[in-house]
Design a protein around this nucleic acid. Sequence first.
DNA 1: AGTTAAACGGAGACAGTCCCCGCTTTTCTT
DNA 2: AAGAAAAGCGGGGACTGTCTCCGTTTAACT
Lengths: 189, 189
Amino acid sequence: MAQVKPMRADARRNYERLLKAAAEAFAEHGENASLDDIAKRAGVGSGTLYRHFPTRQALLEATYVDRIEALGERADEIAKELSPGEALVEWLYEVCVRTTEVRGLKSLLGSAVTDGSRVELTACATHMKAAAERLVGAAQEEGTLRRDVEPIDVLRLAHGVATASELAKGGGSHVRRYLSLLTEGLRPG
Amino acid sequence: MAQVKPMRADARRNYERLLKAAAEAFAEHGENASLDDIAKRAGVGSGTLYRHFPTRQALLEATYVDRIEALGERADEIAKELSPGEALVEWLYEVCVRTTEVRGLKSLLGSAVTDGSRVELTACATHMKAAAERLVGAAQEEGTLRRDVEPIDVLRLAHGVATASELAKGGGSHVRRYLSLLTEGLRPG
DNA sequence: AGTTAAACGGAGACAGTCCCCGCTTTTCTT
DNA sequence: AAGAAAAGCGGGGACTGTCTCCGTTTAACT
């Protein structure tokens, strides 16, 4: 699975430049930033971009793997500090916040939890699912999470909460509230 | 607000043709169906399409107002048959199902509950909010819905549930489940 | 230095959006 | 009924974005 042959020097250089340009462009214009423009920013031809990243999704993934990995690590940090139930909620909160804050991350996380997505098991999907499994399993052990939900359900619902929050003007400020409505339920407590 | 002058005969004819073509195209290709193609199907020039419907959103709205109105009426029908709490849930279920079933409806319903949307208070937004207000109010009276949620919150969360369901392959079959996770909460009952 | 294979780049085919403005159709007037 | 004014039509074309193809360049290895 790993790079069998080392990349040629110019290829490696262009790859990195493209990632940098992509991060800028996605941050500036959202997930639909023009790909040709990204190539231009990076100072390479568009052919080079498409050779390295055959689809927008591939570029998005490469651009944000580190963020996704960071989320995976956060899961474990949080798990050390809080009880399993609290840890799950707090992690989901962070996932939602990133989803709404980091432009372009949303579609990536979305396709990571989509059934039958073209892209077979991307690195991002794997990371997220693994982290969710750990937290969900622990919370169920503890008895603070229903046993009839799967990790993937939780991830999808978190994505839904992020989407709902985004619909409000100050998206971020609604995340906590909407997430707690999900965890506590809409019935009066 | 109503049409001050009656439309010219040809204008009216083209308007209707466009709506019919749009319904077909959106059903076939989703909300991003080509507008020029819709004009072609309708047998009119693209200028005519853009004159009647300045934005994709406007066309989407005109295409689906009747569906939205139907949802508004369903709210009242359901309210007659079930207790307030059950009625709200059942209505939300139908909203979610339509959202996932009718291609193109999603982005319309989404922008209807978006804060600070360009389009000031569209007919769709008004209908949905009014229906939600009735059901939410009744359920809160009855005591089966938290008092700290607004109708708009409920609509947004329903949109989130629809989004989450869509991420699963057989979108429709997950709606009931995800909606009940929202109403009951993720904690064990 | 020479050879080779990998990588480059940007022109260009294609598709979609949307506007502009000369032309046609309808409607109004007398 | 005929002519004028108003309303509406439509499609050409500018523009933007995607993505591929293939002649040219360049790194890597002798």
